[in-house]
Design a protein around this nucleic acid. Structure first.
Length: 258
DNA sequence: ATGGTAGCATCGCTA
């Protein structure tokens, strides 16, 4: 089973490229972030024609998350699990696909360390742990994936000197990733490639950053122990960042022996 | 030190 996360930065602007990529890469489950669509604008029929069931949680102009699946899509939960302080934005959708409980997340950017949005980001990540506690168990087959807007380690950042007093790399943010690991999740790309540095999943559109290799690895696929045991491969498809009208993020794939 | 690009409901915000 191939599970992929991809922040497409507007599904309307990216639909043609997403369709082409799906045909080429044949994911069983594709988790999409930043659809920037309302639910009634989500192209479910386009994905159905490619063999996918889908579930979308959107709000319009900003944010929006979706799960596409060839292996079933059941027990869909939009937003955090009930009982948790709900998020005002459409940033998380959870579903069971092929027996795996999958949460597709678009973690708030944070903007800057002084911004209220940074506090919101940290609180959002705290609530993600509460969501998992309530929704499932670390003993189950669980994947938590998406755009985390956090680089787990310095080697996931092209140039740490550019991230002094910046978001995405702070101890507070990395502590939240540690809390997810503490809950029972493993960064599957890092498990497969323990010694590989400077692999990125996002590059700023500005300044030729992609061409110059200036990126961050902020798109993650986290798996519970049983998923990690069955993880056979992971890669970032940086080819998807090339060419005409790419997203600023590349898809991150994991292949699981399910 | 700044600005660079892309997408949106576009002249200002979000990333």
């Amino acid at each position: 089973m191939r599970v992929v996360t991809w922040n497409v930065n507007s599904l309307r602007a990216r639909l043609e490229r997403v369709e082409e990529w799906i045909i080429e890469a044949q994911p069983d489950v594709l988790c999409i972030q930043e659809t920037k669509l309302a639910d009634d604008g989500f192209p479910a029929l386009t994905f159905e024609a490619l063999g996918y069931e889908s579930a979308h949680y959107g709000q319009g102009q900003w944010n929006g998350v979706a799960i596409l699946s060839k292996v079933g899509i059941d027990d869909v939960v939009t937003n955090f699990s009930s009982g948790i302080d709900p998020d005002p934005d459409a940033r998380i959708i959870t579903a069971t696909c092929g027996g795996v409980r999958i949460s597709c997340c678009y973690v708030p950017n944070g903007r800057s360390l002084e911004d209220d949005h940074y506090t919101y980001k940290l609180s959002w990540l705290d609530r993600l742990v509460e969501h998992l506690q309530s929704d499932t168990s670390p003993d189950a087959d669980v994947i938590v994936t998406g755009d985390f807007n956090i680089a787990p380690e310095d080697r996931d950042v092209h140039d740490m000197s550019k991230f002094q007093n910046a978001t995405h790399v702070t101890d507070a943010e990395r502590d939240r990733l540690a809390a997810l690991e503490q809950w029972g999740l493993t960064d599957l790309f890092r498990q497969v490639h323990p010694d590989v540095d400077s692999v990125y999943s996002w590059w700023d559109y500005r300044g030729g950053d992609f061409h110059l290799g200036r990126g961050l690895r902020i798109d993650l696929v986290l798996g519970s122990a049983t998923v990690a045991d069955r993880c056979e491969w992971s890669t970032v498809d940086r080819n998807a960042r090339k060419g005409k009208s790419p997203s600023d993020h590349a898809p991150v794939l994991v292949d699981l022996n399910y």
